[in-house]
Design a protein around this nucleic acid. Structure first.
Length: 374
DNA sequence: TAAGCGTGGCA
DNA sequence: TTGCCAAGCTT
């Protein structure tokens, strides 16, 4: 990759000025996130796990609630997976929460309850990859490892005006060598946090604030006017569209809930029974038939609770939630299917769409006479 | 290597 | 309403 051979030399000469501009800017503009208070390895680890593919503003509240409930790794190690998932509810990518619990238990057993300060040991832990390992090493332990996340990739794609897709293994390797070269004159924590903060606040994906950028004088894309087309994006596969019908089955103030099987989507979380279709929604009779085949319960329709569009991973679903009542004899339930009260349901870890159905249901039960505009 | 894994905000 | 996007990791 010749990009770095060509552009490295000027950077080596002027990097001290670049670093000064960058760190001065960060000193004035760093957002006061709760994980920036003491930089304890535990806090840095939890925050970095929460911030994987998640904007920092959203992670902030979850982090505060998490630390309040699990102030240290030993407390965390004694938690149940259900409670951990419940605290994670709404944040997405739920296996991160399970990885954290696994790691906490493992560290309490084998590492005296501390996060290792060694790269290899960190990488061996569940849910910790190159980014998170380097983030812990540099931000918590102030060791000279660079982080390469979406922000850093975007910032450098523009600073160096890279004309090809940068989110590849070979480019990341070259960039890592480059960054390790120029970060020698600065605190590792400061360098990494400042670069990511710059990407989050100034060098944003759309409509970057180049006029306010402390290092625009170093930016090749800014000079050429190519900022808007950097970084070069790789094409994505469009989402699979699904039509889903959730069956809210009501019986004596309790509702039927099912647990998602371990290993897959929403593993070990709970939700309302659901049937899905590739095209459009069928009529109620055939949906009820499919529901009966899948869950062995015959139901009668009462009303439609809510409808909305919800996207997750590679799916985009149009969902109807129907309030129904069972007809005829009820089969014995397994431990992964339960009749639960609204309050019991509230305590369960649920994916966002199901939690939204629960909120609508609770509203319609609390205020059954409320005027519905639909 | 590419796909699977969530979600809410915003243009 | 729709598409795009974010402090990634695992298989």
């Amino acid at each position: 990759m010749n990009v770095f051979k060509e552009r490295l030399l000027p950077w080596k000469r002027s990097s001290s000025t670049f670093l000064r501009f960058l760190s001065d800017w960060f000193a004035k503009n760093a957002r006061p996130f709760p994980w920036r208070k003491d930089y304890s390895p535990y806090a840095v680890w939890i925050s970095e796990m929460m911030l994987q593919q998640t904007q920092a503003d959203r992670g902030s509240e979850y982090f505060t609630a998490w630390i309040r409930r699990f102030p240290d790794i030993h407390t965390l190690s004694r938690a149940s997976e259900q409670e951990v998932l419940h605290l994670w509810q709404g944040l997405g990518y739920y296996r991160r929460a399970r990885y954290i619990l696994q790691t906490a238990r493992l560290l309490c057993k084998e590492h005296d309850g501390r996060l290792p300060a060694k790269r290899g040991a960190l990488l061996a832990l569940p849910g910790i990859g190159p980014y998170t390992a380097h983030a812990i090493l540099s931000i918590a332990y102030n060791l000279p490892y660079c982080v390469i996340d979406g922000n850093v990739l975007r910032v450098w794609a523009r600073l160096l005006d890279i004309p090809f897709v940068v989110d590849t293994v070979p480019f990341r390797k070259e960039l890592e060598l480059f960054l390790e070269g120029i970060m020698k004159g600065i605190e590792p924590r400061l360098f990494n946090e400042a670069l990511m903060e710059l990407g989050a606040l100034i060098c944003t994906p759309t409509q970057p604030s180049c006029g306010e950028c402390p290092v625009s004088g170093f930016c090749e894309s800014y000079r050429k006017g190519t900022v808007a087309i950097r970084p070069v994006k790789k094409k994505k596969t469009p989402p699979t569209r699904l039509a889903c019908t959730a069956f809210v089955v009501s019986r004596e103030g309790r509702y039927l809930l099912q647990r998602f099987p371990p290993g897959g989507l929403f593993a070990n979380m709970w939700g309302f029974p659901i049937v899905q279709y590739e095209n459009k929604h069928p009529d109620f009779a055939s949906a009820a038939q499919d529901f009966q085949v899948k869950y062995a319960i015959q139901v009668k329709r009462k009303k439609r609770l809510t409808s909305f569009v919800h996207s997750y991973t590679r799916y985009k679903i149009h969902l109807h939630a129907l309030l129904t009542v069972p007809v005829g004899q009820l089969k014995t339930l397994s431990k992964n299917q339960q009749w639960l009260s609204l309050e019991e349901i509230r305590q369960l870890p649920m994916p966002s769409a199901h939690h939204r159905i629960w909120k609508t249901l609770k509203g319609s039960v609390d205020k059954p006479c409320s005027t519905r505009v639909t």
